[in-house]
Computed example of a mutant assay.
Amino acid sequence: MKPQHGPRRVIIREWMTLPQGERRTADQAAAFAAKASERHGFRCSGDRHQTIMAWLLPRTGRA
């Protein structure tokens, strides 16, 4: 299992529990990712913010 699998699940769960109006745009995802990267310390090979954005963008605007 990858080291960031646990934080990935937690962050996506937090994102999906937000009201739909708060997770509609890429700008909202970027703001959330910035806060999440501060809250969740996990190791990744690149930029933590970009990793979180890659997790969130496919779920942006979903019901």
Rank of each mutant, 00 (worst) to 15 (best):
H5L: 12
M1N: 10
Q28K: 06
R8M: 07
A30L: 13
H5C: 08
R8P: 07
T51V: 15
C44S: 13
W15K: 00
L57V: 08
M16H: 04
Q28L: 08
T60P: 01
F32L: 04
T25I: 08
K35L: 06
E22K: 03
A30G: 10
H5K: 09
R43Q: 14
G21Q: 05
S37I: 04
P7D: 00
R8D: 01
V10Q: 02
A30V: 11
T60E: 13
A36E: 06
I52D: 02
P19G: 06
W55H: 02
D47Y: 03
G21F: 02
I12N: 03
Q4D: 08
A36M: 11
R23G: 01
F42N: 07
L56W: 00
R43W: 15
R39G: 03
M1H: 09
R48T: 09
A36Y: 02
E14Q: 13
R13Y: 11
A31S: 09
E14H: 09
T60C: 15
M16E: 12
K2A: 13
T17G: 06
E22D: 08
D27M: 12
W15Y: 10
A54R: 14
L18V: 06
R13K: 13
M16W: 01
R62C: 08
R59H: 02
S45D: 15
A29Q: 05
K35T: 11
R8V: 02
H49S: 06
L57Y: 15
P19L: 02
G21T: 03
W15V: 07
